[in-house]
């Protein structure tokens, strides 16, 4: 399994990760190695096996009434924000 540098650039963009020029070949090599390890899965006979996404069989997703249970704490939460103005999160201009 070999991942090319251009594939790494595509994956990084999909994941919204800026990589330096030096990082790209390093990840191409290490992702290839990890996917090589993952190739072992092809050995397993999984015909007709139902996949599981969750380790507790039979557990169902709980639902709750659609009611407001949280109080407004935006000032507390926004203390961790990089940039806030008038209770709003600031980001670079999106629409020119």
């Amino acid at each position: 399994m070999s991942i090319t540098r251009s594939q790494i650039a595509d994956i990084a963009h999909l994941a919204r990760l800026a990589l330096s020029e030096q990082e790209i070949p390093v990840y191409a090599e290490s992702l290839s190695r990890v996917l090589g390890l993952v190739e072992q899965l092809q050995r397993a006979d999984t015909a007709g096996v139902t996949p599981i996404a969750h380790p507790l069989p039979g557990q169902r997703q709980r639902l709750r009434p659609d009611e407001v249970t949280e109080t407004d704490q935006h000032e507390l939460y926004q203390r961790n924000a990089p940039q806030v103005q008038a209770g709003l999160y600031l980001v670079p201009r999106v629409i020119e």
Partner: peptide, 8 residues
């Protein structure tokens, strides 16, 4: 595939 092997 991994989710199936997980089941196994």
């Amino acid at each position: 595939k991994a989710q199936q092997v997980r089941a196994l």
